[in-house]
Simulated scan of single mutants.
Amino acid sequence: MWLFLAFVAVPLIEIALFIQVGGLIGLWPTLMIVLLTAILGTALVRREGLRALSDLQNSFSQLQDPTRPLAHGAMILFSGALLLTPGFFTDACGFALLIPAVRDAVMRFISTRIKVQRFEMGGQGPRTQAGPGAHQGPQAERYRPGPREDDVIEGDYTEVPPSKRANHPGSGWTKH
């Protein structure tokens, strides 16, 4: 029911705002504002998205809980969709979601309504827990960075001289 109300209320709010702002400043300035907010929003979404991706990579490399960077990334993605949707209300919501403090507040609000049953990191074998001290245990060796002895794959190779040509006329789709 809430989703239905949002799909009805948001367009009505946008239409009302377009009429009000267009009546105050005119059609072309209103359209320019909408276009400029989309361009500015795209640049900000890219910057914040790269920051969230960096945070996510850091959490994976340090074997920490990736919930926060994943949630921030999802909210930044949603923010981008709002900013590309023409309208003043959606732009205001989109710009608000680009602020890390607002994203943290939204995450706290949503986390009160969601209960995580189980969180695991790693693959097969004994279960490990994320967070400080997660490196101790039988799985710690599995996540050690750098090459190990079992990472080496042996094989044979044969060099093909560059002068060797195909022994068929070709299909015409490739250069021989």
Score class of each variant (00 low, 15 high):
residue 4 F to T: 07
residue 5 L to A: 13
residue 5 L to H: 04
residue 7 F to W: 07
residue 8 V to G: 10
residue 9 A to Q: 11
residue 9 A to K: 07
residue 10 V to Q: 04
residue 11 P to G: 01
residue 11 P to R: 13
residue 11 P to E: 10
residue 12 L to W: 11
residue 13 I to D: 00
residue 14 E to Q: 06
residue 14 E to S: 06
residue 15 I to F: 05
residue 15 I to D: 02
residue 17 L to P: 12
residue 17 L to E: 04
residue 17 L to Y: 05
residue 18 F to L: 15
residue 18 F to Q: 11
residue 18 F to A: 07
residue 18 F to H: 04
residue 18 F to P: 04
residue 19 I to T: 10
residue 20 Q to Y: 15
residue 24 L to Q: 13
residue 25 I to Q: 08
residue 26 G to Q: 02
residue 27 L to I: 05
residue 27 L to Y: 04
residue 27 L to H: 06
residue 29 P to L: 08
residue 30 T to D: 06
residue 32 M to H: 03
residue 35 L to Y: 04
residue 37 T to I: 10
residue 38 A to C: 07
residue 38 A to F: 01
residue 38 A to G: 09
residue 39 I to C: 10
residue 42 T to G: 11
residue 43 A to E: 07
residue 43 A to K: 08
residue 43 A to F: 10
residue 45 V to I: 06
residue 47 R to C: 09
residue 48 E to D: 09
residue 49 G to L: 02
residue 49 G to S: 12
residue 51 R to Y: 07
residue 51 R to K: 14
residue 53 L to P: 01
residue 53 L to W: 02
residue 54 S to R: 14
residue 54 S to E: 13
residue 55 D to V: 11
residue 55 D to Y: 03
residue 55 D to A: 15
residue 56 L to Y: 09
residue 57 Q to H: 15
residue 57 Q to T: 14
residue 57 Q to W: 14
residue 59 S to I: 08
residue 59 S to C: 06
residue 60 F to L: 14
residue 61 S to I: 05
residue 62 Q to L: 15
residue 63 L to T: 11
residue 63 L to R: 10
residue 64 Q to S: 14
residue 66 P to F: 12
residue 66 P to C: 14
residue 68 R to W: 02
residue 69 P to T: 06
residue 69 P to R: 15
residue 70 L to N: 08
residue 71 A to E: 05
residue 71 A to K: 09
residue 72 H to M: 10
residue 73 G to F: 11
residue 74 A to F: 12
residue 74 A to G: 01
residue 74 A to Q: 12
residue 76 I to E: 02
residue 78 F to N: 08
residue 82 L to S: 06
residue 83 L to D: 01
residue 83 L to G: 02
residue 84 L to I: 12
residue 84 L to F: 09
residue 86 P to C: 05
residue 89 F to G: 08
residue 90 T to G: 06
residue 92 A to G: 00
residue 93 C to D: 05
residue 94 G to M: 04
residue 94 G to D: 01
residue 96 A to Q: 11
residue 97 L to D: 06
residue 99 I to F: 05
residue 101 A to C: 05
residue 102 V to L: 00
residue 102 V to C: 00
residue 102 V to E: 00
residue 103 R to N: 02
residue 103 R to P: 05
residue 105 A to G: 07
residue 108 R to Q: 02
residue 109 F to N: 00
residue 111 S to W: 05
residue 111 S to D: 10
residue 113 R to C: 06
residue 114 I to K: 01
residue 114 I to C: 04
residue 115 K to Q: 13
residue 115 K to P: 04
residue 117 Q to T: 13
residue 117 Q to E: 15
residue 117 Q to V: 14
residue 118 R to I: 07
residue 119 F to T: 15
residue 120 E to A: 04
